[in-house]
Amino acid sequence: MSKKFEQVKRYYDVGLWSEGMVWNAVGRWINAYEFQEIVGKEYRKS
C-alpha cells in the first residue's frame, strides 16, 4: 500500500477530492489498483 493511500482515501471519502483529483494522484501518490479501491471504478488512462 502506498504511503499516501489513507490520506487520498480520506480526502475522497469526505468530499475534499473529486474522482478526477484521485485519478491525477495515480503514479504520484497512489497506484492504479488503489484508485480502483478508493473510487470503485477501474483506472483508465485518458
Rank of each mutant, 00 (worst) to 15 (best):
K3G: 08
R28D: 13
E6T: 07
I30D: 05
V8K: 02
E42P: 04
K45F: 13
N24E: 04
S46M: 15
Y43G: 08
Y12K: 01
R10Q: 13
V8A: 13
G40T: 10
Y11G: 02
W23C: 04
Y33I: 04
M21Q: 15
W17C: 00
I30E: 06
M21P: 02
R10G: 08
E37Y: 04
V22D: 01
G40S: 10
A25H: 02
V22C: 01
E42T: 14
Q7E: 00
N31M: 03
K4N: 10
Y43W: 15
F5T: 01
K45M: 13
M21E: 15
G40L: 01
A25Q: 08
G20I: 02
N24A: 03
D13M: 12
Y33S: 14
L16T: 07
F5R: 01
E42K: 15
Y12D: 00
N31C: 10
Y33C: 06
Y33L: 12
F5L: 13
Q7H: 07
G40P: 04
S2I: 09
G27S: 13
Y12T: 00
D13A: 14
V39T: 12
W23L: 09
Q36M: 11
K3F: 12
W17L: 14
Q7M: 05
Y11F: 15
Y12I: 01
A32Y: 01
E37I: 09
V39F: 02
W29I: 00
R10F: 14
R28V: 14
V26M: 11
Y43F: 15
R28C: 01
Y43T: 03
K45H: 13
K3P: 03
S2R: 14
K9F: 11
K9A: 14
M21T: 12
D13T: 14
R28K: 14
Q36D: 02
G27H: 09
E34R: 04
S2F: 12
K4M: 13
V8Q: 01
F35K: 06
W29A: 14
S2A: 15
R10I: 03
K4P: 03
A32S: 12
W17I: 03
S2W: 09
I30T: 02
F35L: 10
W17E: 08
Y11A: 13
E34W: 10
K45D: 10
E37R: 03
E34I: 11
M1T: 08
Q7P: 00
M1D: 12
V14N: 07
F5A: 07
I30Q: 01
E42L: 08
G15I: 10
S2K: 11
D13C: 04
K4C: 00
E19G: 02
N24M: 07
N24L: 05
A32K: 08
Y33F: 07
